[in-house]
Design a protein around this nucleic acid. Structure first.
Lengths: 335, 335
DNA sequence: GTGAAAGCGCTAACAA
DNA sequence: TTGTTAGCGCTTTCAC
């Protein structure tokens, strides 16, 4: 592989000129520019990214730390991140944290060693001193859906609380008289806010009872178990709002096994808008987040911070959309 | 951040000694070893991976090139790869190729610039000269489920042909009298071999007809469309073997919409063993590949090649397993 | 066993 | 505009 020195020699200039040309900073005369281009072409020169990293402290690498790539939500997010990164000439490092603090910490250490230019973080346990540490080392950071209290950092999220209220409202609109909630982990912003949205919507209604909620751990089996418990306690439940689509899928499966017709006997709404909701029958009504857009925006934000285009920490809140599907499509909008 | 020089100074030795200690090559006296350890600890020294890469040409990075992380099969694979890589101190770069040759080529270029230590390749278009090029540059490569003709390289795959025959046999065992096949892209090894397995199993049977196959493009909507066409041509089809689980899910959905009972009127088998088959009702019988194990093994293989533990190219063929579920669970095993 | 020193390929002052 | 040069932090001969 040709080096910058070879190019310089062939073009009859110094390496500094080549460097300037490549990085498009500093002046380069038009004539020499042409010679340089020629030389680069004939030698098929490709700058060495590692050497650039060492010399310039910019590696063109960003890291994506999140719970689990196997989760369709994060897979779609990762896809968006990678797409945008590629467009901007960045490469992305994949880090599955399983929401374990020690894994997150190890990653951060490793990533520093590798001079990653920035980190996109969507796992739970980052504390404000971690954020401060990264900040003091000038490593740009964008958080997805979570932020340590009293740490200022850039955040990309969406309207979970509002979305939860939309979900509940929709269930009432299609005639539900007793609506349960399967909630996600309360350590998570998403799990918490969606729970709150449900609670605020129903707590003053006559039929409300605290025993209408059940945890589902954001998992299919969790959703199934939750339905089992809920229906046992309240056989008259006729609407379920699941805190995410994965649990909604589990809920649907269990409802069908219990012989309950969806949506006629029990209507069901999920949250997130992942494709899983489309492959089951009936398809599941969901409060969709613009996952791909969120991934795109957060990556753009991160790259802008890396490249110094923005300094301040920004917060972006995306709107969510209720997508009505079979799981709430009842014959009659009764009452 | 402390550098190797700081450590050397504090320990009262030269940087060479520190380097030897870190890399565990060359002799280091027991006493000095202790002093070095002390120094490293007090300074919280972490070797700089970029500098090591430049000097030693080993970056501790491997790349995973495959079609799309959004595909559950590849997501699970990626998870395995990342898990193993982490265990061995490697970091993984994510590359979605969408099976486009140009993206693959661009990636290979970028990855070379970044001195990746090895590449795990599961996309379609790599040609034998690409393989040779990588080989001549001493970049270890492991291919998943595909290999350019007449290029020797390490391959990890599983028994697609045999698996397809198992699927068909199973359908016959549960009493199917007319079995169709929804096939995947014939440019892919997987699509081709599964098709061949089907063909070999049925071509001499009295009911066989070439119009019993239909493409499904490895996609949900493809599976749906295929079922529509197949059932129109042959309303008496009572068994379907889909070339992968994604198409099987689509097939199931369409069958249900057509009002056909699964498994009683039409039994259904997929291929791959992804979780999608578990979330639908009925659950789908599938020929499962050990996806996670395949990811683990191929990563281990790659790392061994990187670290010089093996030279020769190896081929690993995994067994597949028929997992029987609701989609083929008929009341009576008739005839 | 250990150290001195020459790079790895590039960037970025600073001079010219 | 362009060139000289000193690093970036580490590995690796080659002496001692």
């Amino acid at each position: 592989m040709a080096t910058i020195r070879d190019v310089a020699k062939l073009a009859g200039v110094s390496v500094a000129t080549i460097s300037r040309y490549i990085n498009k900073n500093g002046y380069v005369n038009e004539d020499t520019k042409l010679r340089v281009e020629q030389a680069i072409k004939t030698l098929q020169y490709e700058p060495n990214a590692i050497a650039r990293g060492l010399a310039g402290r910019k590696t063109g690498t960003i890291a994506l730390i999140f719970p689990d790539i196997t989760n369709p939500f994060f897979a779609e997010l990762a896809r968006a991140v990678e797409d945008v990164a590629r467009m901007y000439g960045y490469t992305v490092i994949l880090c599955n944290s399983d929401n374990q603090a020690d894994k997150e910490q190890t990653y951060i250490k490793v990533l520093k060693q590798r001079y990653v230019d920035g980190i996109l973080f969507a796992s739970y346990n980052l504390r404000s001193d971690d954020v401060e540490a990264l900040k003091s080392e000038k490593i740009p950071l964008v958080m997805l859906d979570r932020a340590p209290r009293d740490a200022s950092c850039s955040i990309v999220s969406s309207k979970h609380l509002e979305g939860a209220q939309m979900a509940v409202q929709h269930l009432m609109d299609v005639g539900c008289k007793k609506i349960a909630h399967i909630y996600g982990p309360q350590e998570t912003v998403t799990g918490r806010e969606r729970f709150m949205g449900y609670e605020q919507s129903v707590k003053n209604l006559p039929w409300y009872s605290p025993s209408l909620v059940e945890p589902g751990y954001f998992r299919v089996d969790g959703g199934m178990a939750a339905v089992e418990n809920l229906m046992q306690r309240h056989p008259d439940i006729d609407g379920i709002f699941a805190g995410n689509d994965t649990m909604a899928v589990g809920a649907l499966k269990k409802l069908q096994r219990l012989g309950l017709r969806v949506p006629d006997q029990v209507a069901l709404v999920g949250f997130d808008g992942i494709d899983l909701t489309l492959i089951v029958e009936p398809e599941i009504t969901t409060v969709a987040q613009p996952i791909y857009d969120m991934g795109m925006l957060s990556t753009r934000l991160l790259i802008k911070k890396i490249e110094g285009d923005i300094q301040e920490e920004q917060t972006h809140l995306f709107d969510v959309t209720l997508i009505q599907r079979g799981s709430t499509e009842r014959k009659r909008n009764d009452e």
